[in-house]
Design a binder for these strands. Structure first.
Lengths: 348, 348
DNA sequence: TCCCGAAGTTCGATTTAAATG
DNA sequence: GCATTTAAATCGAACTTCGGG
């Protein structure tokens, strides 16, 4: 490996000068262009690349950000991850990716590994979070800028980026209501997810505002499962049960896109056509929603933007630490957006 | 930050001894248990964590592996990535994730960044590769163990893990044939993808073996596009065109799951029911295939295993380098597997 | 004082060589 | 020679200090 000393030797200057020139340090002002040129040429010729270990050892910087995902197999993650990656790239940071598999021990081990690598910030993608919020304690003592996506903590030391679930719930119901639907089946999320309650609140408030009465016999609950994919099967099963009860409904509002897919499958199997005989709306707008048959009307979370936003927050945090300013946690709640596709239709 | 010297002071021994004890180095044999205990207790008490920068500077090891993806938004990536992550975790390596967005400049910049971080190996997920294979040159000079998933290079310095596309093509056609289908529409992959040709070869060979004649007017070609998602839209459009031609077919063999989804959409819009009036088979078995309506019969690539396999190869490579053995590149071709679901049916 | 460059110290851990009894 | 411990060198870059013109 070629070191700075090799460049020094090759160029005929000391390693100090080489360092100053190649980093364009403040003192480089004083160094004549001829010297600079010689040094740069030597570095070029030798293919010199500074050793990041040595550099980091002194500067105490890693230019690395930890990304923890609770379950990668959730299609929700993909776009968020792309938003994170893309924004980090622009800021010249590199992400270390870890997938906790919703296991506490794995969370702890990974956190330790990341901290040992001196990550400069941590982004947690709490997409399907079934851990006791005790992990909060572990996170807080890390003392690096931390942002959670998809779950808001009460604490003031961890930033968060979440979608406005209440508005989202309202948008979804409003859409069905405006299409003339009155008998609406509802699939609620597992209570363990922080999204479930506010989303449900938005639905209830909207119903009240519209003067719509929600039939409790049309309200279904997703089971508490650690597996994000489970919501597909559960959505299917709940809908099958509902159909069997013969309680009529003209539309179904699912907790998320996966449970909506499950519902569509169940309706289809029962010979109920979507959207002709029953409208279905989802939540999230994961990638498959656009190419489902029928394509899914849903409430979009701006996932890529949320990833980018989290990076923005922690990069600000990093800069603040470098300048010894201190910033308090930022909590962003982004607006969801209705995406009308083929799975919903006006009631004749 | 607490350093090894702090532990030395606290325990009353020199930093040398502390290092030997905490790393359980060979010389630790000679160190009495009492000393060890004292040192360990001191380290524990102070919450000592060795500085990885310093450690890496000496050992020249980063315990980090670079992962380059050509396009993350491809649903194909998710499971492969999980296989990679999980296997790296077991080997105590951490992945740095980069997404090249199918851009050459981004590939080069990322490669440089990764090499600067002294990654110990590189795994390239060439899922939808539209770059000139010139990047091969860049890769070879990196001189660290490298494995490509999804694309085989002729070189002997880069390992590869690919699915046996020829067998896959055969399996797909065989399945349709065995269900009694004879008029089969075919969507071929873009020529720029290395998967396309062998998959097509498998299909042709199988057709010949069965005595099945492939109608050239039922053979469609996916356009050359850098966007993996494009195969959905292209699949839809090609199928629409085909339907318009009124050339009858009872089954459709798509290049991948996404184009199969597009085909199903088109068939559906034309009032042709899948699988009742037309069977459709895909390739890959991406996550959405299982929860599509109808669920998709497809040829599964064992993606998680392929990711794990690539990690296995490069970890072996790392160990070989440490022991100054040299290993040549490994080329694995894994067998695909037919997954029968709802989108195919026996011809009445 | 300004300009240019070099010598030497530091970051924190590992390792070699050597010093004790 | 053996068991036990340590001073000092090393990894590679960056920064502080200093001296000569």
């Amino acid at each position: 490996m070629v070191t700075i000393r090799d460049v020094a030797k090759q160029s005929g200057f000391s390693s100090t000068t080489v360092s100053i020139v190649l980093n364009n340090a403040p003192l480089a002002r004083y160094i004549p262009a001829a010297t600079k040129k010689k040094i740069e040429r030597a570095a070029q010729k030798l293919g010199y690349r500074p050793n990041q270990f040595a550099r980091s050892l002194r500067s105490k910087r890693s230019h690395t950000v930890g990304v923890m995902i609770f379950d990668m197999t959730d299609p929700y993650c993909t776009l968020v991850l792309r938003g994170i990656e893309n924004t980090l790239y622009q800021a010249s940071f590199l992400p270390i990716l870890t997938d906790v598999h919703n296991e506490r021990s794995r969370f702890e081990r990974y956190l330790e590994m990341l901290l040992d690598r001196r990550i400069e910030a941590l982004i947690v993608l709490a997409n399907w979070l079934f851990l006791d919020i005790n992990l909060l304690g572990d996170l807080e003592k890390s003392s690096i800028p931390t942002a959670m996506i998809g779950c808001e903590l009460e604490t003031d030391s961890i930033s968060s980026v979440i979608v406005d679930n209440e508005i989202g719930g309202r948008i979804a119901l409003e859409h069905l209501y405006s299409l003339g639907h009155r008998k609406i089946a509802l699939i609620r999320g597992p209570k363990a997810l922080t999204d479930s309650l506010p989303r449900w609140r938005g639905i209830r408030k909207c119903a009240r505002a519209c003067g719509l009465e929600l039939d409790p016999r049309l309200i279904l609950d997703l089971p508490e499962s650690r597996d994000p994919m489970s919501s597909f099967e559960a959505g299917q099963k709940l809908t099958e049960d509902l159909i069997r009860q013969k309680r009529p409904f003209t539309a179904l509002l699912a907790f998320d896109d996966l449970s909506a897919f499950g519902a569509i499958r169940a309706l289809n199997k029962a010979g109920i056509r979507v959207p002709e005989q029953c409208s279905v709306i989802g939540f999230d707008d994961v990638a498959p929603s656009a190419f489902y048959t029928p394509s899914l009307t849903t409430v979009r979370q701006p996932m890529e933007a949320m990833g980018a936003s989290a990076v923005g927050i922690v990069v600000d945090g990093i800069n603040a630490m470098l300048e010894k300013r201190d910033v308090s946690a930022t909590h962003r709640k982004v607006a969801p957006e209705l995406v009308v596709r083929e799975s919903t239709r006006r009631l004749p």
